[in-house]
Design a protein around this nucleic acid. Structure first.
Length: 250
DNA sequence: ACCTCCCTGGCC
DNA sequence: GGCCAGGGAGGT
């Protein structure tokens, strides 16, 4: 059941969503960057992107659904999958195999955790790029899975200033950055993600993610840097808040 | 390659 | 009453 058509905005024919899911068996699940992939038999992939405030839960169909539940998929055992998303930046779509190979999905870069590029490949991709590395990290075509908070944290861990032009980073810096991305995402996942004060992001069971307490740059404007004691500053890069340390990120 | 817009709850 | 946060599609 779909009570918010906007959540299906990537489905070319909105009626395709229910039609493509109905009667199919879930064969497996996977993740690519920020996309959750539910493989169904018959060559259909059910894609879910949680945006920033999305939540997926599975519950007995008789139990009341949380507020802002916009899409509900009934399973044959009487339970249902619920997609809850107050801000509706998330979306879901059911695609056929050939549609997966088309834009915009085909443009997605390798998963930042499962298949990160080598330093050599990254060097090549960043060659002559003049955009700030912060903006490039958010470009899912280069690397899929790094969002605003984790980009700032990874750049902090690597000691690289967010304004640096992508093409200016040397091999040593890119090696540090790749290691920092891996460490940051791994730690973030282990902690259950980052729940900010607005409580927009919550785990499926409603608990808050605990990476918030591990943040060293994001959201700490004016606070002392835990590494060098300098002051964390906030800049806006490509209309995104960017927190970094002037003292130890170069 | 860049900016704008979408959306909502919470806070100033 | 207005602003802000987030990801990404689409337009210039």
């Amino acid at each position: 059941m779909v009570t918010r058509p906007r959540m299906l905005r990537l489905q070319e024919q909105p009626t395709d969503f229910a039609r493509r899911l109905e009667g199919r068996r879930i064969a497996g699940t996977a993740r690519h960057g920020k996309h959750l992939l539910v493989g169904l038999d018959g060559g259909v992939t059910w894609i879910i992107h949680l945006g920033m405030s999305g939540r997926i839960s599975v519950a007995d169909g008789a139990a009341p659904a949380p507020a802002h539940t916009h899409v509900t998929v009934e399973l044959d055992d009487g339970s249902e999958v619920r997609f809850t998303d107050p801000r509706t930046f998330g979306y879901t779509v059911a695609l056929l195999d050939d549609e997966l190979d088309a834009a915009p999905y085909a443009r997605y870069g390798p998963d930042a955790l499962a298949a990160p590029p080598s330093v050599a490949v990254l060097t090549d991709r960043l060659d002559r790029r003049t955009a700030p590395i912060k903006a490039l990290l958010l470009d899912q075509r280069l690397l899929a899975g790094v969002g605003n908070i984790y980009a700032d944290e990874a750049l902090f861990a690597a000691g690289i200033a967010p304004h640096r032009k992508g093409g200016d980073l040397d091999a040593g810096e890119l090696e540090r950055l790749l290691a920092a991305i891996d460490e940051t995402l791994t730690a973030g996942i282990a902690a259950g993600g980052t729940t900010l004060e607005d409580l927009a992001y919550l785990l499926p069971d409603g608990r808050a993610g605990e990476f918030t307490t591990a943040l060293r740059a994001y959201g700490r404007e004016g606070e002392p840097c835990v590494r060098c004691g300098g002051s964390i500053r906030r800049d806006v890069i490509r209309n995104r808040s960017t927190f970094w340390c002037l003292g130890c990120q170069r």
